[in-house]
Design a protein around this nucleic acid. Structure first.
Lengths: 122, 122
DNA sequence: GTGAGCAACATAGTTAACCTAGTTGGCTCG
DNA sequence: CGAGCCAACTAGGTTAACTATGTTGCTCAC
């Protein structure tokens, strides 16, 4: 990991963890892997993992406890409707995908129209 | 500044900025001072200011634009709107529409470049 | 056996440095 | 005069090092 989609690494990791939480793969009350573990797991630096966890923390999805770990918050006290977060993550991914594809198209279009003559329309 | 309320510096700054936004002292659409200015203003390091702005960014209170500045979001679209679901649905529709249109464009582009010769360049 | 202390590991905060990338405005040169 | 380059400023991302602080379990001395 972490790929290449133009999405920053710490957001990718945050999205992934968020998806795992929303999806139940990380149940409420259970601790996330430690930051060093996550760093290895995602093949990222400690810093970006800390950033990712920080995002989830400010989102309220997760609560860090010094010396113990980072725990998934109980579903009852989750900040937003669970589906909203889900949809948001999905939408983010989709939008990112669209952005990348559009950029490619734009580039192709630019080079071809330049070569071919003026442009049509718009 | 900052402290020493036990509250970490970056949260104090984030809180202060949030208060200014909520209080109208920083109107929607207006840019925050640049990160370097904020760092001087709060007598903090660049790093903590960046963290503080990052918090507001993930909260959606503020939108950063590379090269220009960090702008206060319009009051209409400020967070915690109860009709978040509505906005989400709308966004979903828009994204779907974009995806379809983009797919068409990509297809046209692919066939035309293929037909006309090998692809060009780059 | 029990308690004190210590080592190892955990999150959290702070700072600094470096790099990327977008915007803007001014200056130079053709 | 205009086009294009360039310098200065902007936010954003990444990494690394250091510090602080809390938790837990082990060992060792008594």
């Amino acid at each position: 990991m972490v790929k290449n989609t133009g999405q920053p690494a710490y957001l990718q990791i945050a999205d992934d963890l968020r998806a795992q939480i929303r999806g139940g793969s990380l149940a409420p009350g259970t601790p996330l892997p430690s930051t060093t573990k996550l760093a290895e797991q995602y093949d990222a630096s400690l810093s970006v993992v800390k950033l990712a966890v920080g995002v989830l923390r400010t989102e309220g999805l997760v609560i860090g406890q010094q010396g113990k770990g980072v725990f998934v918050r109980a579903a009852d006290e989750l900040p937003l409707a669970p589906e909203v977060g889900d949809e948001l993550a999905e939408l983010r991914a989709t939008v990112q995908d669209l952005a990348v594809r559009l950029a490619k198209v734009e580039e192709q279009l630019a080079t071809s129209t330049t070569r071919r003559s003026g442009r049509s329309s718009r």
